[in-house]
């Protein structure tokens, strides 16, 4: 069964994409022309300019689609709480990375010598994922679909199994002097490996096989990186 957006959603998407493109061009032109006022480029690097503007317009576009219920196809509307959960997890991971980088002193500065530094990309990503997460959660609450995330025996079993696997990994690693990855990184990796399972759990039946294949591939890749690198 193919899933398609309905005509109202397509109409909203056709409205959203040109606005996002206009926003992207506007932001980039604005940033480039700020040089005329400031006397020097606003962004310290071209990469920073491109990544920050892309993150902001991309996040804005997804937020607009979520606000107008045009992000998920009619048959996938029930996935909204799962999407919100995944977006919150990604926001959490991004914030975690920001906090740990700040603590280690490895985070690129946000503002340096009167210019927006490379660190701005990390903050723009928090906005780009956090704003859709907030919107998806608000929509799920308004639609009354948030209750679909309630704990079920299967979900509890997955969670208990996952926590057990994490505990076993940490226990095995504790006895090996040649492993230097921090506990925080291991926990983060396990959280990332859990994301596809969350998606599979919430995926509608006709997508389950594909989602399961992607989830297993993702888990296998991260598992390989976690255990052997």
């Amino acid at each position: 069964m193919t899933t398609r957006f309905d005509e109202r959603q397509i109409q909203l998407q056709h409205r959203g994409y040109p606005w996002a493109l206009a926003g992207l061009i506007g932001l980039q032109l604005g940033a480039l022309h700020a040089e005329l006022v400031l006397g020097h480029p606003l962004f310290a690097s071209q990469l920073g300019l491109i990544s920050v503007t892309l993150a902001l317009t991309g996040g804005g576009l997804i937020t607009y689609f979520l606000l107008t219920d045009a992000y998920l196809t009619p048959t996938n509307q029930g996935l909204l709480p799962v999407l919100a959960l995944v977006l919150w997890a990604l926001t959490g991971l991004q914030i975690h990375q920001l906090v740990t980088s700040t603590a280690r002193g490895t985070l690129d500065p946000l503002w340096v010598h009167g210019q927006i530094g490379a660190g701005a990309t990390a903050w723009a990503l928090v906005l780009a994922v956090g704003l859709p997460a907030l919107t998806a959660t608000g929509k799920a609450i308004a639609n009354g679909t948030l209750s679909s995330l309630r704990p079920t025996p299967r979900r509890l079993a997955i969670l208990i199994g996952w926590v057990g696997l994490l505990a076993l990994t940490l226990w095995v690693r504790a006895g090996r002097a040649d492993v230097h990855t921090s506990v925080g990184t291991t926990v983060t990796n396990f959280l990332m490996m859990l994301l596809p399972l969350i998606i599979v759990d919430g995926t509608v039946r006709h997508h389950r096989r594909l989602a399961l294949a992607i989830a297993l591939a993702w888990a296998a890749l991260l598992g390989y990186l976690q255990l052997f690198h």
């Binding site: 398609r4 309905d6 005509e7 109202r8 959603q9 219920d69 009619p74 048959t75 509307q77």
Partner: peptide
Amino acid sequence: ADRIGVTRQTIGA
């Protein structure tokens, strides 16, 4: 909405 393959929000709109 389910019968005609659109979102509930489309019917509401």
